[in-house]
Nucleic acid binder design. Structure first.
Lengths: 153, 153
DNA sequence: AAAGACTTGTTGGCGTCGCCAACGGTCCTA
DNA sequence: TAGGACCGTTGGCGACGCCAACAAGTCTTT
């Protein structure tokens, strides 16, 4: 959404006052930082979500992965193809249920995940640099409450 | 980004703790509410930004509109075409600088803008419903500070 | 006054992200 | 055993942010 954009012309006040606009803009900044950071480690978008789920929950089916990370079934397929090409993930048929693939993270996958964790830690810091630790916690808390309220949408 | 997504499977803790993830998710909820609301009034995305700028700054060139709203020159063209088709905006050649079009908002455009303002007010309320007035102000303040810090990116 | 640099509107294209429909397989249950 | 639900996969769609190129017009420099 045009993340870096500084000009002489001012932005309409109507927009500046809208929480939804502020969230939109903040997301734009955050997204840019994250995807730049990921790109520098040959990863992008869905990769982190999937690796994180695999590391925390162990081998899973593709459908379960999609559900826990909020990624569409069809997009899970594509992302796993990329991860498998890079040797970060292994797909094997599930003997118990032949519809399923059992996806597991490899040693290289865990290393990549660690690298991505570090990238993300740096991003959080850059993103929230104007806020104190207490304020960062405040922001996290407020956003979490908003999200929790919309969890069942 | 899969705005409404509730399942048995939990989300990786790694994600839940990340401010950038919370912002991403909040943006997803917010975006869904906004675009649904806009669609119900036959408007979308860029329309509000452009109408708001025209109402606040008066007739402008397309390039200036793009700069003040963060919309790319080429996308301004398309959005203005739609707005003009709906009679919400008028394009006329600028006599003083023959490269430019002078774009102005029509009476119908102002009415549409008012309708969109109301839609947005409702969205803010739905979005932030779990927060008190003071907390909403807090959230706005925190986000504004983050954005102000990244203004020159 | 001419040349070069820059602006403006416009066209056309690109990649990411979220999403949906459909399919052939497979499983489970009534 | 028949129907319904679930699985992986393919293919497609729209919104959004962006970029390159172009002709027409303007501005700056010499």
């Amino acid at each position: 959404m045009n993340a870096g954009w500084a000009t002489a012309e001012p932005t309409p006040e109507r927009l500046m006052k809208l929480p939804s606009w502020l969230i939109n803009r903040t997301h734009a900044v955050s997204y840019r930082l994250v995807s730049e950071g990921f790109a520098a480690v040959d990863s992008h978008g869905y990769h982190y979500r999937l690796l994180a789920a695999l590391a925390e929950f162990g081998p899973s089916s593709q459908a379960a992965l999609g559900r826990s990370t909020g990624v569409d079934r069809s997009d899970v397929v594509a992302a796993l193809n990329e991860l498998a090409d890079r040797g970060l993930v292994k797909r094997s048929p599930d003997a118990a249920d032949r519809r399923r693939n059992t996806v597991s993270i490899t040693a290289a996958g865990r290393r990549r995940l660690t690298a991505l964790d570090q990238v993300l830690a740096g991003v959080q810091d850059k993103l929230l640099s104007p806020l104190s630790a207490a304020e960062r916690q405040q922001l996290v808390s407020l956003l979490s409450r908003v999200l929790e309220h919309h969890a069942a949408d």
